[in-house]
Structures are given as C-alpha cells and as structure tokens.
Design a protein around this nucleic acid. Structure first.
Length: 570
RNA sequence: CGGGGAGUAGUUCAAUUGGCUAGAAUGUACGCUUUGGGAGCGUGAGGUUGCAGGUUCGAGUCCUGUCUCCCCGACCA
C-alpha cells in the first residue's frame, strides 16, 4: 500500500477527551474514527488489524473443531421471553419493531439464537459435542461508553456456543476452549489471566473472565500472594477471622448515645473501637418486586451486591433503596435496625457470615438518642439467611490464609458454563441419547471482544511516540520510507523496486511514498502507526550501501543490503 | 439514572461589562523555498457560534426550553 493513496491519515491534534493510550493513538494514527458516542468507524488501517486478528481466532477455533457460521442481527424477542431474559436485568438490551409490529433485539449476545438453530435439527448423541460460533456485531445499550474501543455501544465479538451430552463431555470441551483462548491472546502479545468470575444474568454454573492486567482496566480481581487463589472481585472469597475471641459475652443492653454519633466514622471516633465492632445495615430494593433487603454486615466490611443477588436469586435486580423505601417500614437513613420490622412483609434480612466473628457488637437498634450494645448474633438476633455477602479487599486473607492482592485488568474474553440454564427453558432444546430418549443439552458460551482486545494490545504495547504492534496483528509488516525529491530520484526508484519485490513475496508493505513531505514528519507518522519493521531508502542510506533498517521497538538502526532485507523479513 | 463540565472552522482553542465584518494555531488548496525527527514565506477556501424561542437599538455572550458530547459515580460479558 502506498501511503499517499491510503484513506485515513494521521492527525496532529487529537480530541482532548481521549485519555488512554489506545484511544488516543488509534484516532491519531488513522485507525478508527468516532461516529457518535460509543460507535466507531474502522478505517482501512484499523480494518487490516481486525482482519488479521479474526484470522488468528479462526485458526485457533478450527484447531479445536469449532465451526464458523452466522446468525441474523435482529433476534425475535420471543426467544428472549422464552428464557425470561427480556427483562431479567438485561438492562442493555435494545429493541426494534418492524412495520408489522414484530419486536426484535439487535443481539447483545447469542445464546437464544444458537440454541434455537440447534433445535431446528434432529440431533443425536453421536453428533455431540457441537461447537459453533460467529463473528457478530453486538449491540449494548450502554449508559456510558468510554475509553475509545474499550467500552462501546456496538462491537464485533467472536461468540461460541457448545452443546454437549453431559457435564463430563462439557468439561473436556470447556478446557479445550480455555486453552485455545490463552493461545489466541498469546499470539497477539497478551499474557492473559484466567479468572473465575460472576456469571451475571447469563445463568449457569460458573464462568471465567480472561483478563489482561492493566491500569486502564475496569475489572478488579484478586490474586493470593502464594499464587494459589485467583478470583474476580464479584465473587472473591476471603477468610473472616474472629475479631475479639478473648472477650466474654455479656448482657445485651440499650443505652444513651449522643445524637452526633451517626456514621461509622463517628462510631470509631467516639468509642475508640475498630469499625469491626459495629453492626452495619445496607438496604437494597428488588426493582421488579419492590422487596426490600436489609443486608447486615460487620462494620469494617462492604456488602458485595453480586454475592447478595446470587444468594437471593435476584441477579441483576437489586438497586439501592431510596429514602422513601426506608420510610415505608418506618426507618430512615442511618437508623436502620438489624432486626425487627416483622409487621412489614416487604422487608427481609440477610446476614453476612462475618456476624459470627464478633462478640458484643455495638449498634443494630439505633434510635435518635439510644443504641444497643453487647449484641451477639445467634443470641440477640439471627437472620433466616446467613451467607457470604461481603466484598473482598486488598490485604484480606484468602481462605487458606494467603494475602490477597488486588489487581486491575481489562476483560478481553469470557467463558461460561451454562449448564442446563437454556435447555431447561427453551422447549425442544433436546437431543436423542443412546437409549432413544430425549435429553437436555449441557451448554456453554464463549466470547472474545475483538476490538477491545486490539485496544488492549495497544495499551500493553506503546511508547510516547505511538503504538508498537505485535507482528501478528500489525496492519502491515514493513514500513518503507523513501526520502526523495522526485519520483526520478534513485532513492525513490530503489524504494519502488524493494516495494515490488517484498509485495511479490507476500510481505505486506506500507510505503510512505510522499514526495513533498519532509523526513521528520514521515518518521513521526511511522512511529505513531507502529508497524514493527522500518526500512528507509535515501541518498544517505544508498551512499552507505543500501537500506537503513530499524525495528519499531528498538532505537538502533543499521544499513543493510536488499538481500539482507529480504532475508530479515522472510 | 444521580453529580459535575462543555457545545464557536476538519481539529485544538480565543472572543473583555452584551458592541465594529466572530479570530488564532493546526490541517487543507495553490505558489515559492526547503528535504534525516512534525521546517519557512505568501495567497486562498473553510462558520446558520448544537437547535428552538425570548429579552435588547444590538446576543457567541443574558433568560427559557430542548438536543448532543465529555468526566465521576451507579449500571455493565
């Protein structure tokens, strides 16, 4: 490709809202351009990268016997009603209606569609496992897109679905796919961590997120110091140690408390005791049923809403309670009790297991000027549900006692063990087993965010001058720069010859053939675009015996012959 | 959806208490000069100041409404 003919040039000024490296450089170098918020054009250079990444994914998918296909973009809403996902927390689901009144969703994900296509066939156990996938545009009605390609409202995803006989067969397939994913990311220069995570409204048994550690990441996860435990923040387990095992359990009492003691900080300050000695209540509301949930937890811990939702089987349904909600059972912010409210059917309690680690809590029944102390869980109050509903934090201990280290990362892919979630709900999602009986599929779904992965590769591989593409997904292999005054200059002709012979060999070259552009600008552009190999042809290089060669990632250059160039890039 | 900020040339930004023909840089077109790290000079094109009302002799500037975008949070394969 001659740079002079390329659509999508580099620009000097980049929109000031581009804060992260990948966003800034991809725009500046002419790989992408924003259409409206969260929707991007892929320009020719960006598309080249995408094409190469797609090819890598295809290769690795083929290697594990996955078959590529394509589903319609608009999915009938009836399918989503079948699995009850049309309103189960699928906040980002968009809908469109055609002239006949039929409702569709531009697919945010494809479980229903893929299950639907499979049930259109007579499937025998001999046909299993089935692994089918697509590269499909995903539409998510994100309230807020951000970070360039990191979080967009529509994006290309590789999504896979497997249909297996049973859990045993599933596990074998699952492992093959996890291994393939690790390989895929490795091939684009990314070391991925496979992190157990929350399966949200996808349902099913367990899932993993594929995370690249990065400061720009949105996802938080924990790794134990001994390296034996790793988990996403949403589900991370930790050890709750006894806070005051030496203390004697004493009698419950209600006592006067100055009314300036309101918050947890006030408590710590006033009583000169650690936050862990106090009771904390956090109130949530089920946004469908209106049920209010009071989560009771040790004062030093935070409630993990994801865990709570799973405990209550209200995935995606909880939101913060409002002042009106608190008033509905005669309470107010800062004065929610840890027990009682028996007259209110719409109120329920859930306790964290940490409640058992403290003797003689303070709190739990705060009125304007009184509170209670020496409160003991199990003696003075006890909830119907006691479960792990707490958020892990940096420095907490894993269950086997190793310190947890919090890390930030970018989620580039995920794998879900869906179990029978979809085959239970979708009528006819059955195969015939070896006894001739109908059986449900044991399913899984697997995704890779294509554009996000590309952006992540840049987050990991860049310097102050621009991007540094891994060779596997670089838009071109070689950046050829000719420094010439006219097309009849020797340097221009030599560049032309080299361009032809490299191209003939199938090596992709981006030749900066511009005559009127000064060398400095060409170098700056080449750095920005980040093609891994650079060859310069100029009168100076020719005097020195050939072509000046340099890697994008290195600062030293050397002059080599055409034969050596061909050898290096072969 | 809550809090904050911003909409002026392709882009980045100016425009004083409401006051002259809305400016500059950069980019772009043309000409000259120049050719190893975003050079220099000159000439030109490029604007319904997001949109709709209102106040005023006069509105980019003040008021009302509305739309869009950005940041923080909430939400979130």
């Amino acid at each position: 490709m001659k740079y002079s003919r390329l659509f999508g040039r580099t620009i000097k000024d980049v929109p000031s809202d581009a804060t992260i490296a990948s966003h800034k450089f991809l725009i500046q170098a002419g790989f992408i351009r924003e259409s409206v918020a969260g929707r991007y054009f892929f320009l020719p250079l960006g598309q080249k990268v995408m094409d190469k990444f797609v090819k890598i994914v295809e290769e690795e998918m083929a290697a594990i016997d996955a078959q590529k296909m394509l589903i319609p973009i608009l999915q009938p809403i009836e399918l989503w009603q079948e699995t009850n996902r049309d309103n189960s927390g699928g906040y980002e689901l968009m809908t469109v209606q055609d002239r006949r009144g039929a409702m569709f969703t531009p697919g945010g994900t494809g479980e229903e569609m893929f299950t639907d296509v499979v049930r259109k066939f007579q499937i025998s156990y001999k046909d299993l496992p089935i692994h089918i996938y697509q590269f499909g545009y995903k539409f998510r009605d994100e309230l807020r897109s951000k970070g360039g390609l990191m979080r967009t409202r529509e994006f290309l995803m590789k999504d896979s679905y497997i249909f297996t006989e049973n859990n045993e067969q599933f596990e074998i397939e699952y492992k093959r796919i996890v291994d393939a994913y690790v390989k895929i990311f490795k091939r684009v220069g990314l070391d991925v961590e496979v992190v157990p995570a929350d399966n949200g409204y996808f349902g099913g048994e367990y899932c993993h997120e594929f995370i690249i550690e990065s400061e720009t990441g949105e996802g938080k996860y924990f790794v134990s110091e001994d390296g034996k435990y790793i988990a996403h923040e949403d589900i991370a387990l930790f050890k709750r140690e006894d806070v005051n095992p030496e203390d004697k359990v004493v009698e419950f009492e209600i006592f006067e408390q100055p009314d300036h003691v309101r918050t947890m900080d006030d408590n710590v300050e006033f009583y000169k005791l650690p936050a862990s000695r106090f009771l904390k209540n956090v109130v949530y509301k089920n946004r469908i049923t209106g049920k209010l949930i009071i989560a009771t937890i040790r004062g030093d811990l935070q409630v993990n809403k994801n865990k709570l939702e799973h405990v209550l089987d209200m995935v995606g349904l909880l939101e913060d309670a409002t002042d009106e909600d608190l008033a509905s059972f005669g309470s107010k912010s800062g004065y929610v009790h840890s027990w009682g409210y028996k007259d209110y059917d719409h109120v329920m309690f859930v306790g964290d297991t940490s409640l058992r680690t403290v003797k003689n809590f303070i709190g739990g029944q705060k009125e304007e000027t009184t509170d209670s102390r020496n409160v003991n869980y199990g003696r003075d109050f006890e909830h119907e549900i006691t479960a792990d509903i707490a958020l892990a934090e940096d420095g907490f201990l894993s269950e086997d006692g190793s310190k947890l280290i919090g890390k930030k990362g970018i989620e580039v892919g995920n794998t879900f063990n869906l179990g029978y979630f979809y085959s239970d709900k979708m009528k006819g999602a059955r195969f015939t087993d070896n006894n001739g009986k109908d059986e449900k599929y044991y399913m899984g779904s697997f995704g890779i965010g294509m554009a996000r992965t590309i952006a992540t590769a840049i987050e990991v591989h860049n310097d102050e001058n621009g991007m540094i593409w891994p060779e596997s997904i670089a838009p071109y292999t070689v950046s050829l720069i000719s420094i010439a005054k006219s097309e009849s200059d020797e340097s221009y002709i030599k560049a032309q010859e080299l361009y032809s012979s490299l191209t003939e060999k199938g090596i992709e070259v981006l030749w900066d053939d511009r005559i009127e552009t000064r060398p400095g600008e060409k170098f700056a552009d080449a750095d920005l675009i980040g093609i891994p190999h650079r060859v310069i042809v100029s009168s100076r290089s020719l005097e020195n015996g050939g072509f000046e060669y340099k890697k994008r990632s290195e600062s030293d250059s050397k002059v080599i012959s055409e034969a050596e160039v061909m050898e290096l890039l072969r």
